[in-house]
Design a protein around this nucleic acid. Sequence first.
RNA 1: GCGGGUGUGGUGAAAUUGGUAGACACGCUAGACUUAGGAUCUAGUGCUUCGCGGCUUGGGGGUUCGAGUCCCUCCACCCGCACCA
Length: 928
Amino acid sequence: MTYQPNQIDEIAKKIWKEQDVYRVENDFSKPKKYILDMFPYPSGAGLHVGHPLGYVASDIYSRFLRMQGYNVLHPMGFDSFGLPAEQYAIETGQHPRDTTAENIKTYRRQFDKIGLSYDWSRQVVTSDPSYYKWTQWIFSELFNSIYCNENQRAYKIDVLIKHFEDHGSNGNTAFTNQNVDEFTAAEWKLKSEKEKSDVLMSYRLAYVSYGEVNWCEALGTVLANDEVINGRSERGNHPVMKKKMRQWSLRITAYAERLLRNLDELQFADSLKDQQRNWIGKSVGATVEFKVENHKAESGIAVYTTRPDTIFGATFIVLAPEHPMVSELTSSENHEQIEAYILACKSKSEIDRQAEKTVSGQFIGSYAVHPFTKKRIPIYVAEYVLMGYGSGAIMAVPSEDERDRKFAEKFGIEIVEIFDKSGILKAEIGDKQGKLINSDFINGMSWDSGFEAVVLALEKEGQASFKTQYRLRDANFSRQRYWGEPFPILWKDDIPELVPITDLPVENADVSEITPTADGRAPQARNEAWVHAVPGFQREVDTMPAFAGSSWYFLRYMDPNNTENFVDKKVATYWNQVDVYVGGTEHAVGHLLYSRFFNMVLFDLGYISFEEPYKRLINQGMIQGRTQFVYRRNSNPNLFVSKNLIPKEQMTEYSPIRVDVSFVESDILDLKKFKAWRKEYALAEFELEDGKYVCGSEIEKMSKSKYNVVNPDTIIDKYGADTFRMYEMFLGPIEQGKPWNPLGIEGVSKFLKRFYSLYFDEAGHSRLSDLTPTSDELKSLHKVIDKVTRDMENFSFNTSVSSLMIALNELTSFKTTSSEILIPLLRVICPLAPHTAEAIWVQLGNKESIVKVKYPEANLEYLREDAIEYPVSINGKTRTKIRISADADENSAKEIVLADEVVLKWIGVQEVRKFIFVKNRMINIVVS
RNA sequence: GCGGGUGUGGUGAAAUUGGUAGACACGCUAGACUUAGGAUCUAGUGCUUCGCGGCUUGGGGGUUCGAGUCCCUCCACCCGCACCA
């Protein structure tokens, strides 16, 4: 019997199902490993060959750990709330619940087909009420918590309320990024419910506010900062504008420092850590106050600067157009121009504003007073200063900041050089080099001493303070959508209250139509009965964003059926951190930051015992598609010309058209399939080269619309699951992106066939014998055990596949039949090719699945050589090889080598100046 | 502009971390078995030279007995961030 992939797959899958081999118990007595994949959004398109790259890798690793005796938690679920399901529902009239369920089925079938070893009894689905009950519960916890700056952790809000009752706002250490007026304990008691609610709202980790949000008209919703890319929506690429709305937000900024600091401990790729660092954007500087000339207000303009040392170069002040002091500082003569300028800024979309590269601004008509020189310096309004960062105002130093310089040049403002950069090679603007000049009492200082001296001097006057600033913003948590978690919030008199935990989950309202109401409220508002279900209250009609459910799902897998708690603390302590998390880099600043935040809050509140969710992260690269093109002649739309018949300069006379990759093999188009594809091509004519139509190609992202999607199902149907798995791994290092290339797959397929025939002859009889293995056979076996075992920790499965191929080549040439070699070999290949290993295992008469059989250990004794073939170099060039006993020392080796004929020939009359002997490696002779 | 990464045969890639560059595989060439080959097996395959040999890890320079690997410099490409004061 020869290797029949489909039969093999079937045999293996049957055993796994019968013996329920992938079920994992919370067995605290066993050492654990938690291997996690980023769960997918179950889209209607199903999986393409790019998706399983990471899944296969984590599966191999999980299987390996299982065979090493670990209790391995390796679960999978579905991130099933989200926009695409909703939009599809609107288009087709189906409920997203139904299409989602349908898609999940497809995914499950595809996962099983690949042979991924998930414990499906632990599946989580974020849109399932039994799951989102706990998402709502976590929201409630966030709502009921505050962050203490002093102790750097979250507390229940009761602590803060008690503090207000006893001391008022005096001595309050709770984090806020909003303005809260001071009050005494007595004043607190006199506050109305609404007033109290408003004060507390400034501290809650989940809070509601009226603020500018990223509004996407086309999607009809607000987006989080990481969902907006260059002023456009990540999903759908629609324009995004600023809009003032009532919004729920998460106060992730409270955790900025911890999110940043902990990165050092995590095993994430440097690039990914940098992306997070960049997103958090810590900068150390100072707030400096500039008094305004002839202005009645006591406080001046607060500016944020990271370079207080440059203050003597500050020759103007710039306010953001939205800055609250703009109108009061505008002189009556300038009123009109300023109004016009601000209006112009406002009417621009984010995209236009970012695209704008020319300097613009307006003089406001009043002056600030330099805190040291007391000179009057003009105040401007300009777009390049953003209200959302720092204080929305800057002191402009044209000599040390490029944007300030451009502005100064355009408006003819004085530029004062404040650094003596003579003698410094390649001195650049703002590079902190040189000694300070023209700077009064800090003259001669370096930038950092100047920094401190300036802030300390102004601090005494109450005009400056050190300030650390983060770029990270609070996360918008409201979506004016339907297909997301409803908020567990009831409104009464403009005060939000939590739905009691006993009433959770709040399930999605049934609505006649999944579109916003006529007055622009979210779809759930259509169901009046749902909104008013609790007498005297109105339900919040917005839903949570997709990242709500995905920010804590890794915890639910540990204890998926717990109805009392989101996860039992003991169970969570046992499974603990995810040992290895595998997924794409696209979640670098979204999911990975939010889930770290959720985990930290739950840790602070004592529900779990670890602060960071993921110990190690592996980012698999993206497999791209190879799009194929045909070339249609513009002057004759029925004529398609083979690629190489078109000279480059005539290419403009043709339109390249994407064709489905399934019509093309090795760039040759199947004309029949193409003609049958669409009516308009039925009568197509072709100009062929050598009787063939050659297509063009381009590497692009795999996507339905580009007709370059390769479905794993077709590969598996043809070659079997193990060929697919091993080929994905064999393609190259896991982190690296690469185009899908079907050509190499035959090599892996052949390998598995030959591997199988090591065990069975053509008639299907076992070849195994009880012969004593030779030392060569033992060396082959233990070499591959050693190599694969070492590769596992590095996720370097491409070289594991190679080493298995080498082992097979060697054992085939030895005509090995010894079961002492072949049985361990079967266990070595098992994680990579589980179906093949299982099927052979069963056919050899075993009853218990191979899945939990112990992984072999390499015995390095077998790898030891008696003699080493030393490469001998003369002046660094390898000239010959000489076999020398492995335990030979330098002197005995020297004797042998210098007597060698070839060596002598190369040395000739020259003198041996040096003899370098690296034991077990090589020999180099230096002559001259 | 800033940050991170990559660059090795016709192709995907290896290289024990400073020690025989190109393992393994695809492709290609030749041969065998076959009615046939897009099946299987065998041999060859970095470039160059008839050969001895010479050259070769994006370019240039350096350290070293020895560099794909370390240092300097330049180039190209990919990813992320971007008026963040």
